[in-house]
Write a protein that binds this DNA or RNA. Sequence first.
DNA 1: AACAAGTCCAACCGCGCGGAC
DNA 2: GGTCCGCGCGGTTGGACTTGT
Length: 322
Amino acid sequence: MGRPPCCDKIIGVKKGPWTPEEDIILVSYIQEHGPGNWRAVPTNAGLLRCSKSCRLRWTNYLRPGIKRGNFTDHEEKMIVHLQALLGNRWAAIASYLPQRTDNDIKNYWNTHLKKKLKKLQGHDHDHNQNGFPVSKSISKGQWERRLQTDIHMAKQALCEALSLDKSSKISDLKQPSNGPSPCTGGPIQSSTYALSTENIARSLEKWMKNSPKSSLSSSETTRTGPRPSEGTPSATATARQGFDSGLFSFNSSKYDVSHESLSVVEAENFTTEATLFQDESKPSLEIQVPLTLLEKWLFDDGSAQGQDELIDMSLGETAGLF
DNA sequence: AACAAGTCCAACCGCGCGGAC
DNA sequence: GGTCCGCGCGGTTGGACTTGT
């Protein structure tokens, strides 16, 4: 049996920006069946998209718990440090910033941080004012660091294979408080379904802005207010109304996605749709677990330690592996 | 106001990995 | 052991938006 054609060769597969309708269909489907088995998602959900596109849309945009908007100084520092440590392994970096997607981090790096570091490199040959290592040293030790990371990951995989008990301890130690396991590399399913509605609302807002005469006709049923350009309540709010009163039984507008994270109390307010996702979720964002050396170092805003120290630390961990 | 250049980001593309058979 | 297949990752692109002239 031959390999089926890649999705991009299948006739009838839609490409380009997702419409709010498609978003809703996808979220509804995943709400019901959970993420995974992406191959079956487009056909089962009735979407004219390839499985890859569905997965990407979900992981990069619709997945609950995604924080959007400007990166904080702290996040920025973490990205720079982690990039120095891990190289362009955005998924690994994203695991330390669970509210950000690898795509977001990658984009932010390429559009902001790369330039910033380059600029700073001109001023300081060793470290910039924030203590960021300069890219010169990044490229120099990149392979070594990558190797260290690989060893580290291999160690974890081995530990898991050898002893469940031990692995859980390692996971507790090594994992960020709410990040995915580096062993599994799975996406973060933290937070709640509520945030998906925020994401769709954003999508709808953008969609309405971009294509006022577009195929929204079918979603007119959910849109109860005038367009944002008409100087009335934002499409986000409008969309929320639709979601709140229709598909989704809770008031998502209560939850401000601009916040660093949702509090436990807020999380408890979510209804069945939310808990559906929480079941498959990693622990709440607010749950704190002991930080590793790396994490402590990363979270230390005043940290201006050099990269060599980080490598030493990493090597130290590696040395104790076997 | 009009145009050009720069910026941003969602989405696409191709590759590699690992499990299933 | 080889092949198929699903999935995840990193790099890249295209188009909308913003800023500068």
